[in-house]
């Protein structure tokens, strides 16, 4: 338990593109109270010590993914990090590595967003199927589970900052875009595997991942990009060896009641609330 109002040294990376040739470290003494996060600490600095300190944030509750920073050498969300949990009287706060610094603690995430867009993170399906208002796509709870974990990504860039391959390889897509790629490849509504297989199997694709595991270790949302990439490699290799079972895109429901859980079908415990039994299809 942290004592109230103790002083903690914040060693913050500063960089002003108008004045500085390279980043430098500035130390602030922050009065820390119980329950204070690193983000709160930065606010305290801005209010009490230095109004010129710049960082990016929005929601303050681990949802928006804006405040990814390198805190004590580890990429994580500033809003999600309790100062008391870090221990010690010194905290280093820097911008996420493997991105360009715009100013102080603000990385330019555009390179990640460009790579994300390049993996076609959207349902690829026959246009007629998509625009037709006749019925919804049917997807079983099990089929949903196959990719649901990977949809929790908030694009904070922590995995990209932790990845050793991205430390040198500018062309490597990186954990976040490849996880999005796997997420859509696994979606039964999607028919874009062949298009994405070319992207994922090419230069800078999934095979530049060597399972150092840092992305999964630092992910603040438990998305586990390393798992997604290994499952992606498996699919690519099986597809190359012609051992993959051909994915049948899911069908549309034919009308009210069609596609609901059958009486003898056990849905995954997570998906259905235990005290509300699933409706049966009579």
């Amino acid at each position: 338990m942290a004592e109230s109002n103790k002083i903690v040294n914040f060693h913050v990376t500063r960089y002003n593109p108008e004045k500085d040739v390279k980043p430098y470290i500035q130390t602030y003494k922050v009065e820390v109270t119980d329950g204070m996060t690193v983000l709160d600490g930065l606010h305290w600095i801005k209010e009490h010590l230095d109004p010129t300190l710049v960082w990016r944030y929005s929601c303050r509750m681990g949802i928006c993914g804006s405040c990814g920073m390198l805190i004590n050498g580890s990429p994580t969300l500033a809003c999600n990090t309790q100062i008391s949990h870090l221990g010690g009287m010194d905290i280093t706060v820097g911008p996420l590595p493997n991105f360009e610094i715009i100013r102080d603690l603000v990385p330019d995430l555009a390179s990640m967003f460009d790579k994300h867009a390049s993996v076609k993170p959207n349902i690829i399906r026959d246009e007629a199927d998509l625009v037709s208002r006749q019925g919804e796509f049917y997807q079983s709870p099990e089929q949903l589970e196959e990719f649901l974990q990977f949809t929790f990504c908030i694009k904070c860039g922590c995995c990209m900052a932790a990845c050793p391959t991205l430390a040198t390889d500018v062309r490597y897509l990186g954990p976040m875009p490849l996880t999005a790629l796997q997420r859509y490849n696994t979606d039964t509504r999607d028919e874009g595997f062949d298009i994405r297989a070319k992207i994922a199997g090419g230069d800078g694709g999934a095979f530049s991942c060597h399972y150092a595991g840092e992305c999964s270790r630092v992910c603040p949302k438990g998305v586990d990009p390393a798992k997604a990439i290994q499952l992606l490699k498996r699919k690519l290799v099986l597809d190359y060896l012609h051992l993959a079972s051909k994915k049948q895109p899911c069908k549309k429901l034919e009308g009210p009641g069609h596609g609901k859980l059958l009486p003898n079908m056990n849905p995954p415990a997570r998906t259905v609330v235990q005290d509300a039994p699933a409706e049966t299809n009579k």
Binding site: A197, K198, G201, G202, D203, G205, F207, K233, L236, V237, D239, Y240, L241
Partner: peptide, 10 residues
């Protein structure tokens, strides 16, 4: 399929 997958598989 792309060359990356092929060479890596081998």
């Amino acid at each position: 399929m792309s060359n990356g997958t092929k060479f890596w598989t081998w």
